[in-house]
Design a protein around this nucleic acid. Structure first.
Lengths: 208, 208
DNA sequence: AATTGTTTCCATCAACTGATGGAGAAACAT
DNA sequence: ATGTTTCTCCATCAGTTGATGGAAACAATT
C-alpha cells in the first residue's frame, strides 16, 4: 500500500509530485498561514480544485511536505555521518559543517520549514518532527559528547541544538544578512562556513 | 510635536499605550499576518474600530511596535556596554551574555519580533530596523574584533551575527526546545546561559 | 446649558480564504 | 460506440480579514 507521498516520489512528473514540489517551495518561503492554496495552484499552473483533488486539505499537503523534508534531512545526516567517521574531531566537525552548509544552501526551503516549526505558534498544530531527539542523540555520540545514545546529558543536547540553530540561521536569514554584509552569494556562503568553524570548532576541541 | 509612540509612553494607562502593549505581545506571538486586529482589540477589551481610531492601519501599529522594541534594545545594549567596560574579555563576554539572556527571557516577544523580521518573507515590507549595522559595529569594537567603528571586516560582522542569533534562538524556541530537554523554565534558562558561554567564550578568547 | 472635541461601539463593506459539487475532457479498455 | 476511470476546470459557498461611517456616550471648557 503506497502512501500518497511515496506515490508522488515514484514519478516526479506526476501531478501529485509537481504539486508537492511547488508546495514545498512556497510553504518554505511564506510559511503555512501565509501560503494560500491558490498560490500553489498558480505556481503549478493548475486550478485550485485540481490541487484539492490530489492532496485534499491544505493541512494534509503541508504534512506531506514536512514528511518529505524530514526524510531528506535524515538521509543527509546519515550520509554526513558515513563521510566523517573515523576522522579526528576537528576534521569531523569541519567536514560536517561544510557538507551541511552545501546541502542547506542548495535547499533553502528546508531551514525555513524547520524554523517555522520552531517559532511560529501556529494553531494548526502541524510540526516538523524529524525525530529531533533521536538525531541529537546520534550526533552527541558522534561528537564525543556522550558515550551512550541513551545517556545524553541535557548539556550535550543543548550544545548540539546551538550548533544546529546557528547553521540554520545563516541560511534562512540570507536575504536579511547578506545585504548587511554587502557581499554576493558565493562569498556569503564562504564567510558563513568560515564563521561557523571559527565559532564552533574551538568550543568542542579545547581541553577543559 | 509628540509622535503617537511618545504620547503612548507618557501615560502607560492611556488607551493608546494599552493597545500598543497588547499589540506588542500578540504580534510577538503570532507574527504580522497571523495577528488580526480583532485579536488585539479583544485582548485589550475594546472594539476593533476603537483600535483603528487610535492607531490607524494595522501596519502603522506594527511599525509603532517595532519602533518601541527597537528603542528598548538599543537602551539595553547601551546598559550592557556600560556595565562590562574595562573588564577582561572573558568577563565581558560572560556578563554580556548573562544580561542579554535575562532581558530577553523576561521579554520573549522581543526575540520573536526580530526573528519574524529575519525569516518571514512578508509582503508587507515592514522590518525591524534597529540600526543593526550600527550596533554590530559597536559590539565589534567592544569585543576587540575591530579597532575602528568604520572598519569592521565582514568576518567580524558575521561572527557577531552568529552570537546574536544563537542567543535569540534559545529564547524564541523555548516552547520547542524545553520539552525536548525535559526540564523546567528556571533550569532551562540556566542551561542556555551555560551553553552560550561554552560555545562562544572559547572562540573569542583562544589565541590563534 | 451649550458647545466642542474626544472616545466608544454597532453595522457594514469588499476582498480574500479554504473548500466543494458538478460538468465536462482525456485516456483506456471493452 | 460504449462504459469506466482518471483528471481538470468553472462557479460557488460560508467564514474571516482589514477597514470605514455614523451614531451615541463622555468629558471639558465656556
Amino acid at each position: 500500500m503506497a502512501s500518497p507521498l511515496e506515490k508522488a516520489r515514484q514519478d516526479p512528473n506526476s501531478m501529485k509530485a509537481r504539486i508537492l514540489a511547488a508546495a514545498r517551495m512556497i510553504f518554505g518561503q511564506y510559511g503555512y498561514n501565509d501560503t494560500t492554496t491558490r498560490m500553489i495552484a498558480k505556481e503549478v499552473g493548475i486550478d485550485i480544485s485540481t490541487l484539492y483533488y490530489h492532496w485534499g486539505e491544505k493541512q494534509d499537503l503541508y504534512e506531506a511536505v514536512l514528511a518529505d523534508v524530514g526524510d531528506e534531512i535524515q538521509q543527509e545526516l546519515n550520509e554526513i555521518e558515513r563521510h566523517v567517521s573515523g576522522q579526528s574531531m576537528v576534521r569531523r566537525l569541519e567536514t560536517a559543517l561544510d557538507m551541511m552548509c552545501d546541502y542547506l544552501f542548495s535547499h533553502p526551503e528546508v531551514p525555513n520549514l524547520i524554523l517555522f516549526g520552531y517559532f511560529n505558534k501556529t494553531q494548526h498544530g502541524v510540526t516538523l518532527d524529524i525525530k529531533m531527539t533521536e538525531h541529537i542523540a546520534n550526533i552527541a555520540v558522534a561528537m564525543d559528547l556522550a558515550k551512550n545514545k541513551k545517556k545524553v546529558t541535557i548539556q550535550a543536547k543543548a550544545r548540539i541544538l546551538a550548533v544546529w540553530n546557528t547553521v540554520l540561521n545563516f541560511i534562512s536569514g540570507e536575504s536579511f544578512f547578506r545585504p548587511m554584509l554587502e557581499t554576493d552569494r558565493e562569498h556569503y556562503i564562504q564567510v558563513v562556513k568560515e564563521t561557523l568553524k571559527f565559532i564552533l570548532v574551538p568550543a568542542f576541541t579545547a581541553e577543559k
